[in-house]
Design a protein around this nucleic acid. Structure first.
Lengths: 233, 233
DNA sequence: GAGGAAAAATAAACTAGTTTAAGAAAATGA
DNA sequence: TCATTTTCTTAAACTAGTTTATTTTTCCTC
């Protein structure tokens, strides 16, 4: 299993385009042994490269360069990756587990900003990008394994791996569209339908987080969610 | 006035960084006459270049190339730039006036997704990026002048002007953060404070759009907004 | 400047979602 | 395994925001 390097997986995807087939096949052969060992050494990083090279083309050299900037970290259930008011220096890529970002409003009500499961990116983006203290906290819901990247290194990557600019552009396009669609739902749908949509869109998340947390994501109280659920049956 | 080309304006901004001063000064001199005529011919496009080169560096050649892809359009008050269900092929940059994107939910309630004033970009982003029919409509609130860019040309720009990738990344970063902050406000603040914040953040928009439209942006009814306003005094 | 249409305000009945409180079920931990 | 804490549910009183209807104001436009 382990010798299925990311390059081979990428190759399989590129096979859809016959014109590029020969080129990548040769490229792949040349790098074969190198990749073989590579993927055994850096196994833990493979998911990230797979994730990125699904969206933009990365050379082996660029992948190498990229990985040097990331570092591994694991967090126990309930442990905080980021606390409100702390400087927000890191961007997290989730390899395993589930994370949640949230904050408390003035009256102490908890609001969930987002969940992040495997292959999602999470941080307090406005504060990360502008090097300000975090407005929200990020906590592990389950024992989780992440890759972290700090702001300085992100900027170095932008300079040294041009295609990462494109990748990050696509990531932000996606995030913007997702957030806008969520806003549209919140403006136009009653809580019951928002809950149904959440279950449909994120079944894996829904099965692993508490109802209280789902309620605080949907912007309703746990009591009201409980009522919606009993009406549904 | 008109001979203040975008390059000269850019130069003024870069003067804050003394080390780059000499380089840009010489560059600017060499291009001076060319720019002079250029900015008289393409005067209408100047704002766009000024807007972009505030965020990334553009060479004269790149700016030239870029502008070829954009075309001008004007819309009368109440005219539609995009109608729901129509193919969403264009991205709009607002030169003058005010636009609004909105949709009707199942029960016929109008929801405002965003406003766009001078120097803002607007489209139905999820549908534009994925070449799908629009879910929302875009309408001119006042007589407006825009620059339009279609999806194919945007992709050509990404290929031929690398720094536009960076520009668009920053645009999307901003849009994502703005939308997330709006979501946080909607989850945690009562309508009265959301209205106050709207007035504070977008005073220029607030003065030009109807209360009904502001209400539909905040996710409340015009009647309730009217009540909030009378309580305020 | 008159007349018609749209926007805004007021008010009263109404409803979606909240609050408070208390009990049942489930997870945690020692 | 038992005690403790947390999550989930139920129910009743409550409130933020809606609906419907009427009046007033603003703003086109002829």
């Amino acid at each position: 299993m382990y010798c299925y390097s990311y390059k081979v997986i990428q190759l399989a995807e590129i096979l859809q385009h016959p014109i590029t087939w020969l080129f990548f096949y040769l490229d792949s052969l040349v790098n074969y042994f190198r990749i073989y060992f590579y993927s055994n050494c850096h196994l833990v990083l493979e998911d990230l490269i797979k994730h990125i090279s699904k969206r933009v083309h990365l050379s082996i050299e660029e992948a190498d360069l990229l990985l040097d900037f990331f570092s591994e970290a694991t967090f126990q259930k309930k442990e905080f990756l980021l606390q409100k008011d702390q400087q927000c220096t890191d961007l997290f890529f989730v390899r395993e587990g589930i994370l949640r970002s949230f904050f408390l409003n003035e009256s102490g009500k908890e609001c969930t900003v987002m969940f992040a499961a495997k292959d999602w990116w999470i941080t307090d983006m406005p504060c990360f990008l502008n090097r300000r203290p975090a407005m929200i906290s990020i906590q592990a819901i389950e024992n989780s394994s992440v890759l972290t990247l700090n702001k300085n290194d992100l900027e170095r990557i932008f300079d040294s791996v041009p295609s990462f600019n494109i990748f990050f552009r696509k990531l932000m396009e996606n995030a913007y569209c997702r957030e806008q669609l969520r806003m549209i739902e919140n403006l136009s749908l009653p809580a019951s339908e928002r809950y149904e949509n959440f279950l449909r869109k994120y079944p894996d998340v829904a099965s692993k987080v508490s109802l209280k947390q789902i309620a605080s994501y949907l912007g309703i109280t746990p009591e009201f969610l409980s009522m919606l659920r009993s009406n549904r049956k």
